[in-house]
Amino acid sequence: MIQDYVMQTGINILLAWSVYIILLSGSLSFANGGFMAIGAYVSAVLTVKFGIPLILAAALAGAAAFLFGIVVAYPALRTRGLYLILVTVGITASIKVMIESIDYVGGIQGFTGMSGASPWHVVTLVLVVGAALWLISHSRLQRMLDAVREDELVAASLGINVVHLKVACFGAGAFIAAVAGSFYAHYLLFVRPEDFGILPSVFIVLYVVLGGMNNLWGPPVGATIMTLVPEFTRGLAQWRPTVFGILIVLLLLVRPDGLLPFRVPTERRLRNRPNNP
């Protein structure tokens, strides 16, 4: 039981971070459910049909999604705002329908035979990704990403290769979503295309928005709360989606910038200087 909580929470934290990484450069992606599907199916085929060990299969699946992410990012990131949201929704929808039509992986019936994912895999991954993001959050790279997010045009006029950064973030997000998807598939033992539709993509974004998208702690906080709160509202089990939906609506009304809305400066104040307001 506790294992299930750890597994679900860990995977959702990874997925939330996968959206957060893309958001670092200012793009909101609803394609991560699709990237997750690529990871789940590629790794499942590799372990089940080719007998490749899970860890290697997950890495390969991540690499496949990374390449896919980069290839679609070049055209997709020409759009912005709601247009980009629609394009990423379209990517997820297309991936789902394509998998449904591939008989090799069971089509609409789903694919099974995977096993072997343990909570330790996921906990380790959360720690690794978290450490990497923490490192970035205090770096010059974070500063450049913040600049891109604030004003792409000005960032470019300071010598920052905006397209390069945005595409790299998109690829990295796809990678993490796919690795999370790999472990998800090998933990659930059975996946269907409908596990990876638009609904999961929206939920991942909700974790990030509810937690706060301006610092790296927001997404895991959002993911943890959104994963565990429904689990512990057993009394309301029957009304879970309704309670959940109302909770989201209310949270957005009360804290539209998320639970942890602050941004962490990349360069701390020096102790010997007076603080400014």
Partner: peptide, 26 residues
């Protein structure tokens, strides 16, 4: 109503999505 500024388009989209979820569940 509360998310009318241009920056709030994601918030409004997600909030309306949640509204739809509630409606679907009911």
């Amino acid at each position: 109503r509360k998310f009318r500024s241009h920056d709030a388009h994601i918030t409004a989209a997600l909030s309306s999505f949640a509204f739809g979820l509630v409606l679907l569940d009911l």
